[in-house]
Amino acid sequence: MTESDLSELRKLAESGDVDAIAELVELAGEQGNVDELRRLSDSGNADATDILIELATERGDITELRRLADQGNVAATDQLIELAVEQCNLDELRRLAEQGNTDAAEQLMELTAE
């Protein structure tokens, strides 16, 4: 797809063309285009958000997962906790626990008890 085609697809998506949005999300996911997915996610596209969470998890991108979790995304929060546990990131678990996340608090207690 040329840059011109992509530009036209973005214009159609911005005008609300559902097929163009779906194609743009799919293309961004296939290319691992985090910036495009983030833009689509921030505009409210749940599919883009799901793919963004998947990519962030695969890449171990705590910053992106934190950004989405802080926006209230439960799936991102769950993945953030899982990644923090895998990385023994006590600071992140503590931060989430202090925000009232009981799963993070439980994981933090388990890790610190060892």
Rank of each mutant, 00 (worst) to 15 (best):
R94C: 08
L68G: 01
E3S: 12
A75T: 07
R66H: 03
L68T: 00
M1T: 10
R67E: 12
L52C: 02
L37T: 03
I21G: 00
D91V: 00
E54D: 07
L40Y: 00
A105L: 12
N45W: 08
A22E: 04
L93T: 06
E14R: 15
L111P: 03
I51K: 04
L80F: 09
E106N: 14
D70A: 14
E86I: 00
M109S: 15
D50G: 09
E8S: 15
I53N: 05
Q99P: 02
R39H: 07
A105V: 13
C88V: 09
E98L: 08
R39T: 03
A69K: 01
R67F: 05
R59S: 11
N73A: 13
R59D: 06
A48N: 01
R39Y: 02
I81H: 07
A28V: 09
A84W: 00
V18S: 11
L27S: 09
V85W: 02
D91T: 06
T112H: 11
T57P: 00
I81G: 13
V25A: 12
T63M: 04
D35H: 01
E23A: 09
A28Q: 07
E23N: 03
A104F: 15
V74P: 04
R94H: 13
L12S: 06
S43K: 12
R66N: 06
L52Q: 09
V85C: 03
Q79P: 03
L40Q: 04
E26G: 14
D70H: 13
M1P: 15
N45G: 12
M109V: 11
N45F: 15
D19Y: 00
E114P: 06
L65W: 08
R39D: 06
S4V: 08
R95H: 08
G29T: 06
L80E: 05
E3P: 04
T2G: 14
D70F: 12
A22C: 04
D61L: 05
Q99D: 14
N101R: 06
R10V: 15
D5S: 06
R38I: 04
D50S: 10
D91N: 07
E64P: 01
V18G: 05
A46S: 02
L108T: 04
I51S: 02
I21N: 00
E54C: 06
Q99H: 11
T63L: 10
D70M: 10
S7I: 01
R94P: 05
V85Y: 00
E64H: 01
E86P: 00
G16D: 08
A28I: 05
E26L: 12
L90S: 04
E86K: 03
D35N: 01
E14C: 09
E8K: 11
N89S: 12
L24A: 04
M109F: 08
T57Y: 04
